[in-house]
Amino acid sequence: MLEGIIFVAVICAAAAVEAKDLKLSTYALGGVGACLALAFLTFESYFFAAFQLAVVSAIVYVLLLVQKRQKIVRDDQPRSSVWNYLAALAFAGFAGTAFFPALAALPDPLQVKYTETLRTFDVVGMLIVVCVAAVAISSLFKARKHKDKR
């Protein structure tokens, strides 16, 4: 079950990165987020599954809004240079050799029984992060004009 969900998420992610149509790409990203909500559901955290879904919809909504406002439709940029692909490949190889032993040593997700979860303090912290974003956006739009140009 869990493997299936992650597999769908990987397919969605590949589609999101490679799609030429950016609307499709955004919806695919929403699909990745929805898979995450399903993963929460697998572990019977119903409230957090709903919460995750709500946040993902908000993210997709914001991105679509940006697309509509800025008339961003397609990704028609030419391919980047071969070196970028090689760097990505080298990085993947390095990460793979570093992490496969570590991943093998981790416990089976279905057997994990740690009970400690996020503390109220951290949740408050995350709410602060959202406030930061709100102030940041206002500054990005409202601080645009200088009293003098330099």
Partner: peptide, 16 residues
Amino acid sequence: MRKYTNRTGYYALLLL
């Protein structure tokens, strides 16, 4: 920062 607009936002971000 006198030369910039939206200084209140700047100070809010600085405090954060």
